[in-house]
Amino acid sequence: MADVGTEVPIGDLLASRGDLLAEVFTPSGTNTAEAIVDLLDRVVHRGAVVTGDVIISLAGIDLVRLDLRLLLLGIEGTPG
């Protein structure tokens, strides 16, 4: 396990952001707000959750999640 703790610079990841976002195919009829909701729903509500003392709890985040849920209901109407 000689590679424990290796740190490697990844590169200027954000430089190509425009191209990366363009990969998301949003057909006509899908408005920008919906595209953002699609993104927020994945980035903020999905993905692996880390727990335990390695995590710093950010005071604002849970509130944001709650607000976001309300917001999603507001934009998207009643699920069904």
Partner: peptide
Amino acid sequence: LPLRFGTVLD
């Protein structure tokens, strides 16, 4: 394996 937004490590 995406991690949830707001995952801040100490």
